[in-house]
Structure formats: C-alpha cells, structure tokens
Computed example of a mutant assay.
Amino acid sequence: MSHSKPIMFYDGGCPLCRREVAHYRRLDRQARIQWTDIHRHPEQLTRHDITPQAAMTYLHVRGSGGEIHQGVEAFLALWQELPYYRHLGRVVKLLRLQRPLDWGYRRFARWRLQRRCADGVCNTGNKKGR
C-alpha cells in the first residue's frame, strides 16, 4: 500500500476551527500534514468517501496509510505527526482516555455545528446540523 501525508479535513468557515488549525500548522514545520479546508474544497471529501454532513459534524483525518479517523481518533492521528502533541497522544493512549474524551468531544462537536449552522451557512442537509 502506498503511503502519503495524513490529511486533516477542517471547516475553514468556522473561526474556532481556523484558529486551531493555524496553531497546528505553525507546529508542522516539516509539512508532514496536508491541510484541506472543506469549506473551500468540498470536492476533496468525495475523493475520500466522507460525506459533507459527517465532515462538518466531526473532525476527520485520513492517515498516511489511507485509513479514515474521526473524533478523538482523528486528533490522535494528527497529533502523532506534530511535535509536543505526539507526547500528549501517547499519554491519552497509555491512560486509555480515548472513550471519555470522545464522549466529550462528540457533544462539543454537535454544539459547535448547531451554532455554526444556525444561520443556514452550512450545507449539511439540515440547517441546525443535527
């Protein structure tokens, strides 16, 4: 199997998401990650069999081996490529915190989507993002 750079799919229309990605990009000095703004390039989702609704709801990362991660697993796949964060990822795995963190993240992500899409800006098939 051919390996390539991991891809982080993010909502570039979301101010919170843009700030977080800007932070990660500053750390990615070796350009190990491909950053894909799904707000500007929604066609990239189709290439990876990710629906727009799913991508707007939860963070998705395509790993270097082609596997798709979402939620906390997506963060862990991203963090393993970044200095400092790779250590945090190891701690999360060592302490087996994925499930409780994913539980919290999914609630936050649904809240973020509802706020982001309340004015109909998102095209997820449901204006409130549910």
Rank of each mutant, 00 (worst) to 15 (best):
L95K: 06
Y10V: 02
L97S: 10
H41V: 02
A22Y: 02
C117V: 02
A118Q: 12
C117R: 10
M56A: 13
R32G: 07
A74P: 04
D119E: 15
C122Q: 15
G129Q: 07
F108T: 04
A77S: 14
H23M: 08
Q70G: 14
E20G: 01
R32I: 07
H69Q: 14
L94A: 13
Q70W: 02
D37M: 09
L95T: 12
G104V: 09
D37I: 10
R116N: 14
R115W: 10
G125K: 08
V91Q: 07
A74Y: 09
G120R: 00
R130S: 11
L59I: 10
M56L: 11
W111C: 06
R29H: 08
E20Y: 02
R110E: 02
G66S: 11
G65C: 13
H39Y: 09
R106V: 11
L59P: 03
E43M: 07
A74M: 12
R115K: 12
Y105R: 00
Q70I: 00
P6G: 05
R86N: 01
N123P: 11
R115F: 05
E73P: 01
R32F: 13
R130M: 01
P100D: 04
H23C: 02
H3P: 11
A77E: 15
G13I: 10
W111Y: 08
M8A: 11
G66M: 05
K5H: 14
G104T: 04
V72C: 05
G120C: 14
M56K: 00
L82N: 05
G89F: 06
R26V: 04
P6F: 10
L16M: 12
